[in-house]
């Protein structure tokens, strides 16, 4: 049992080492030259107030540029409710009576 615990610990520490080695290759200085700060971001920052009228760029992207994403995400919420209700709310009369008998 002890052996197993030590083995998992070593395994996960080596996994952390691997991941850490990989992220050390990423650009460390957080500047506007980073690859993630590309033309798309610059376009949003420059044009969001004039194109959408909203000065909060996060809100402008969320509800205008990428509103379709947000629609999909509300559908995810809807699906989660349907899934939870279908698991927890037993509306079938026969099943309910059986569970009361137990």
């Amino acid at each position: 049992m002890m052996m197993k615990r030590v083995l998992t610990l070593v395994l996960f520490l080596s996994l952390f080492g691997l991941l850490a080695h990989n992220v050390m290759e990423m650009p460390g200085k957080f500047t506007v030259d980073a690859p993630a700060y590309n033309d798309t971001t610059q376009h949003y920052l420059d044009n969001a107030p004039s194109e959408t009228g909203a000065i909060n760029v996060v809100g402008a992207i969320l509800a205008d540029y990428r509103a379709f994403d947000t629609l999909g995400e509300t559908i995810v919420l809807f699906t989660s409710i349907v899934a939870v209700a279908s698991i927890l709310k037993v509306t079938d009369k026969k099943t309910r009576e059986e569970s009361h008998d137990e």
Binding site: A34, A36, Y37, T40, T41, Y44, L45, V57, V58, I61, L62, R66, D69, T70, E73, V76, L77, T79, S80
Partner: peptide
Amino acid sequence: YINPLPSVLILTGIVVVVS
């Protein structure tokens, strides 16, 4: 300004994790 795109993507991701 900081990069707004990752923030927007994560805003969506948080809700998925809640679900």
